[in-house]
Each structure stands twice: as structure tokens, then as C-alpha cells.
């Protein structure tokens, strides 16, 4: 948004600018952006790491050496996070308008905005963004994406609400503190809720190692080549 000589600024200008910016920044509005990895989408199962092992003889203390079958081991993650879904742009527009209305801003949509009210507007917008925009990531090298969180319904309060044009020293301190609280709200960071598991897949070609494979965790998946091994954290 640029302002030329003679132009004026209304709340509508700021609201439309905010909506455009939100839509352009979020990777889950009207579908996922093409570069969002599966590890940040609800319901996905992703292999974070895998390694193939060839058949080996493993010495066992007090026993004969045993053959370990060829297999591939995996470290997997299953994303179970209902915030990591898509949302429509109509929903975003509706939620922003409802929020601003609840803060007494939208009712003034067509009116000119004063210097101080612009600051108040942006503080309220920061409050909205600090709840609805989340930095989605995990510790599995998935990158960082901004998502619009349709589940967020609690917004930080904004102390400065007066609509007169005077600015006191105390109010400016309040304004800056409000901004700091909103901008640095750690709850904006959203760790993609992920269940990690360890699994082995036996190779079908390892027929010579039948004795070892049958004794390991055969009970969990006798009809499948894949089984989940116990966790021992």
C-alpha cells in the first residue's frame, strides 16, 4: 500500500492490506503451498531416516553366533496435529472481520484513521496475528512455514484503546510493551506434533536367516514384512 499526495487512509485500506498480506504469507490457505513437506501435514507418515543392512553373523555371548537377516531399518514419524490442515480464504476474512469487530475496529471501517488509532489498529492486528499465525516446524529438518491456525480462539489483550489523538508517555510505554508481548509470543511457534517410531522391514531374499528372524519379534507381524519394535526410552 502506498500513499500519494492528497490520499487518505481509512480502516478499510488497512484491513484489506492486512488480509492480502496474511494470504500471501500463509502456506495453508486455499490448499498447501507446493513446498510444504508431508512431515508438516496432519495424518502423514514420513520416513526420517532409513538404512539397509546385509545379512551378517552376530556373535552372542554364551551362544553360537547367529545369522541376522538382511533388512532395512526405519525411523518414522506420524503427524497427528489438527492445526496442520488447510483453511479457506473466506474463513480467514470472516475471522479477521469478526475479531476486529469484537475490538471495536471494523465498525469504523469507512472512516479516516488518526495517527494514534493507526497504532491501536496495528496493535490489535498484532494480537490477531500472534494467535492465528503460527510458525510450524519440527526438529526433523522440515523447514519453517507460516500457517494460519483455524483452531486459535484466544487473543492477547491490547491495553491501548482510547481513540483520542493525544499520546502520553505512559501510553507509549504500554504500546511498546504490547508489541513486544505480541511479537515475541512463544506460543506462535508450533511444533508439529509427531510420534516417532522405529521399524524394521525384513528382506524377502534373506531366506538363509530364517532362524534369527523368527526369534526376534515375529509375534507382531507374522503376515507382514514390517513390524514395529518396542521402545526403550
Amino acid at each position: 500500500m502506498t500513499i500519494a499526495v492528497g490520499n487518505t487512509i481509512t480502516y478499510n485500506d488497512l484491513i484489506q492490506d492486512a488480509l492480502t498480506k496474511i494470504k500471501s504469507k500463509c502456506a495453508n490457505i486455499d490448499g498447501f503451498a507446493s513446498n510444504v513437506p508431508a512431515s508438516l501435514k496432519n495424518g502423514s507418515t514420513v520416513n526420517f531416516h532409513s538404512q539397509s543392512f546385509t545379512q551378517t553373523l552376530v556373535p552372542a555371548i554364551g551362544y553360537k553366533s547367529v545369522a541376522r537377516s538382511a533388512h532395512t531399518s526405519y525411523i518414522r514419524g506420524t503427524v497427528n496435529d489438527s492445526a496442520l490442515t488447510t483453511v479457506s480464504s473466506d474463513t480467514v476474512k470472516s475471522e479477521l472481520e469478526n475479531f476486529l469487530s469484537s475490538r471495536g475496529v471494523l465498525v469504523q471501517a469507512g472512516t479516516l484513521i488518526s495517527f494514534k488509532n493507526m497504532m491501536t489498529f496495528y496493535n490489535n492486528l498484532a494480537s490477531f496475528l500472534s494467535a492465528k499465525l503460527i510458525y510450524v516446524t519440527n526438529a526433523m529438518n522440515s523447514g519453517v512455514f507460516i500457517f494460519y491456525n483455524p483452531l486459535a480462539v484466544t487473543y492477547p489483550t491490547v491495553s491501548l484503546t482510547s481513540d483520542n489523538t493525544e499520546y502520553s508517555s505512559e501510553e507509549i510505554t504500554t504500546t511498546v510493551t504490547d508489541l513486544l508481548n505480541a511479537v515475541n509470543n512463544v506460543s506462535n511457534v508450533h511444533y508439529a506434533s509427531t510420534t516417532i517410531s522405529y521399524a524394521c522391514s525384513s528382506s524377502s531374499s534373506s531366506s538363509s536367516s530364517s532362524s534369527s528372524s523368527s526369534s526376534s519379534s515375529s509375534s507382531s507381524s507374522s503376515s507382514s514384512s514390517t513390524y514395529i519394535v518396542y521402545m526403550d526410552i
Partner: peptide, 12 residues
């Protein structure tokens, strides 16, 4: 931390 492990008795 240990994510998981597999074993066959004390064999491997």
C-alpha cells in the same frame, strides 16, 4: 536419546 531398539535375546 534412544528412539528404539531390536534384539533377539542376547544374540544381537
Amino acid at each position: 536419546y534412544r528412539i528404539g531398539s531390536s534384539s533377539s535375546g542376547s544374540a544381537y
